[in-house]
Design a protein around this nucleic acid. Sequence first.
DNA 1: GGCCAAACGGACGATTGCGTCCACTTAGGA
DNA 2: TCCTAAGTGGACGCAATCGTCCGTTTGGCC
Lengths: 226, 226
Amino acid sequence: MVESSRIAAQDGLRADARRNRERVLAAARAVFAEHGIDAPMATVARRAGVGVATLYRHFPTRDALVRDAFAQQMDTCVRALTEALAAPDPWQGFQQLIETVCALQREERGFPAAFVAAFPESTSEHAQSRQRAERDFTTLVRRAQASGALRADFHPSDLAVVLLAHCGLVATLPGDGAASRRLVAYLLQSFRADTANEPLPPPTALALRSLPIAADSPQRQRAPRA
Amino acid sequence: MVESSRIAAQDGLRADARRNRERVLAAARAVFAEHGIDAPMATVARRAGVGVATLYRHFPTRDALVRDAFAQQMDTCVRALTEALAAPDPWQGFQQLIETVCALQREERGFPAAFVAAFPESTSEHAQSRQRAERDFTTLVRRAQASGALRADFHPSDLAVVLLAHCGLVATLPGDGAASRRLVAYLLQSFRADTANEPLPPPTALALRSLPIAADSPQRQRAPRA
DNA sequence: GGCCAAACGGACGATTGCGTCCACTTAGGA
DNA sequence: TCCTAAGTGGACGCAATCGTCCGTTTGGCC
């Protein structure tokens, strides 16, 4: 679903338009990572070195920009699911899947918010691919449960629980990979049927009090329409 | 730290001022629950039936309003910690503490965001009480570990991991108690040294796709200053 | 009851972000 | 090289929110 430059070459856009489009996408990723996905469109445009009008011509709404900016990451998620299904050991696949998606959320700042925001996107195309993803994931869960590795009462919707919780964590503590890894480890451990205590990744160095970024900066709740 | 009406009676405020103050606090809780803590101040004022100026006179900044609006909830958290320390079984205390705080976050919409936002508040007074809370919690953890119920590699900073993750979850899925309960159950289970599989609370009825509220409405990342 | 400081409320100027309009530029085929 | 349609950029009008200023009201002491 990502337009590689090869595909883009066939999209009928003029060379400069294509160039600008890519610039805007790159700028959007950078700005969204830094200021959250509600950063002013003008900031993205400035960062890309183009005018606002150019930005709006390519991406009529903020959501369109966000979606396209993180299309690659979304694709990686989809691919991870496919690979998980293909894995010989379903539990391995399950574990890999969750770790991959969480790593993505952790590393690509701004992606978590985009991920959550994109959820209810009920575009015909997106709805379809999501439905397929849900079906595939359910299959994976069944297999992993049948193999005895995944606890029987794990419910496919628990994936949302994991991802949204993890999203929230990395949104609040951006850059704290340790915390994210710990959460994932704790959860994966809970999901195993035979819950032997496996060693955890090291805890974050941050104490409870030192959340330097969370407060004055990016994310907090947001009021849409008063 | 909460001004009960008794204490308020001695605060030298005129009767109408005191009344308005309480009205504003109540309105703030309601509005913040409904629209997030970034809801326009004017909305809070209107809901309270007072003018903006009155609101600003009592609470010069939005943060002051948020802090005071959720002071009661914060207190409950502190009390929960005290009770946890007093519990005969340290594991019980630990479990209770986490469940209480998460229940609070789950039930009082808007509180989670306030909770996170309040974290780095380095007010002299608040810093002190937080330090004390951290010390107490560490004590609780040590005791629970000594009793053999809490896994040895649990680190006090994991509390932040739990609370922030849970925050994120309930912020995205407000009103979904099931998801919140599941997360808490999964995590608590991971924290036990002897990880027997205990039954989980029922999963949420929501499938991955149906996040009716998350998208167009309240919370997503937010850009502060471009 | 009367007085006055405390409290009130809404209008207002400032700031910020959005998205469009239009005059100018340029890519690339003829 | 020239021509034209596609592309560009920034100025502009609109809307929302902020926080203050100031004329009016009212609680509560004398």
